[in-house]
Design a protein around this nucleic acid. Sequence first.
DNA 1: ATAAGATTGCAACAAGTGTTTTATGTTAGG
DNA 2: CCTAACATAAAACACTTGTTGCAATCTTAT
Lengths: 290, 290
Amino acid sequence: MGESFTQTLAARFDSLPAQLQKAARWIEAHPHDAALLSMREQAGRAGVQPATMTRLAQALGYDGYDTVRALHADALRHARQPGLVATAARRNKLQAGTREAAAQAMVQHGAAQIGALGDPATLTALSQAASLMAGAGRIFCLGMRSSHAVAWHVWYALSLISDRAVLLDGVGGVGFDALVQARPSDVLFVCGVAPYTRAVVEAVMQARAGGLRVIALTDSPLSPLISQGEPALIVPTDSASFLHSMAPAFTLAEILVALVARGDDPALLARLDGLDRQLAAFNTYHPSKG
Amino acid sequence: MGESFTQTLAARFDSLPAQLQKAARWIEAHPHDAALLSMREQAGRAGVQPATMTRLAQALGYDGYDTVRALHADALRHARQPGLVATAARRNKLQAGTREAAAQAMVQHGAAQIGALGDPATLTALSQAASLMAGAGRIFCLGMRSSHAVAWHVWYALSLISDRAVLLDGVGGVGFDALVQARPSDVLFVCGVAPYTRAVVEAVMQARAGGLRVIALTDSPLSPLISQGEPALIVPTDSASFLHSMAPAFTLAEILVALVARGDDPALLARLDGLDRQLAAFNTYHPSKG
DNA sequence: ATAAGATTGCAACAAGTGTTTTATGTTAGG
DNA sequence: CCTAACATAAAACACTTGTTGCAATCTTAT
């Protein structure tokens, strides 16, 4: 992208005839509409003949008006995460194509993804999920393949603060048999992204049939893991790499557990303290402890 | 706004035929494109007949596809420049102390933590670690307790793109015996944060003694897991909750793997493709695949 | 196994698109 | 005042768009 539309326009604006200037002014004032509306519609709103838009595009050196619109569409697409990311990119400029540059791009993308989790819908779902977990009997944790790390981590964190967490991994070929003993007061935390593992989807259906509440952490509002009326945590999984990213899911899961823990009683800290002692007694930790 | 497109869709999604679901999934995954591209173009990208898009719109009760696109266009217009974090906090003013507010604070904190990973030192370490991994024979992955999810995920992702990954979990009480068979061309990826698990520290020492290169992902430059002259990935673990956060570590680990994969040969995509086929053959995935 | 129904792919359609051509008006210099 | 030279408007053009009707195909229940 050698030059932005605005720059190109500014360079030649003064030498344009009156009608073209009128059209150009409107485009500058309504860049969103320039991307989203048809040329004729734009011409109408700008108070200009349709042909004028085409002529403007050509006068600026573009093939036609479609090019102009594509420019504005790209801007709409990419002008996403302004703060954080844009400034970081400006700060340390790396040669494109190097591994450092790629790494930096991924870091920025990741930060933007996490930041986007702050939208109201996600926060509400988090809150609901947390209260559901807090009031639950047992909490079953399920996730396979790329989602396994997330499910495992949730189980582990929960097991630090309570004894109600049950991990549903398939170790030993036992499948998810523990689910059959679940009671309606229990909840199932399930994490899964497309392509959805069949066994997980079936386990969710089984849990639902058994009357369990289900908290789904997944990648789309249309995920088969989501149960109507239950909290659904939706995270992005897109990545610069071809491996989709589970980092947003992991982060959200961690926040969820933190929320659950927050609501818990003061006996919790004592419990964690006791755990530390116990582990120290078993010589689990290396002495150079922070 | 009576109902958002997503809500309308979610309500009837299950009762839609396969092709309409496929189209709907694509739209949900690419809301920007849904606003900016022509229907035929969208159909092509979604792998669906043009008519299907129209039918979907009508099945959801809209007049036609233009209505659907207008909905997404509006969303694109209004969800404009949120300064991501700062303005998001301003926009939805939450009462301090509520669960939503706490969640939002954690999200913002998390985004900042991830963004901070873009500093030059970390990027350099990432690059070194990636080239080390790329040139390695086998890659042992080690991490226990809260670091286990990270180690597991790295192992899993690596095992998707090569057959050189070995997970060192202690399942079955076998300890880390696999390490004794390691050769100097192998590398050890280890993740661990304070308080450092004794067994992990000892395994690192053993690996170092055996001539292995060691990539450490840890929480401090003073961590006992770091070997002199080896790449060290330092991540923050502080959290609003008392449970320390592993999300930055997880994110960085994922980027590391992506970098390793990036450098790999073109045979990689073929390999992943083959994997997909294999899993499909074994009926691993739920049919509603993206 | 078969029929009724739903779903899908294909091709044709009218409407709308961006562009180009043609006609009309406007302005400046001889 | 005329007439080039230019700017604007209008109309015609080729093309793409979103939609719909119909036949082929796949489900599903009898």
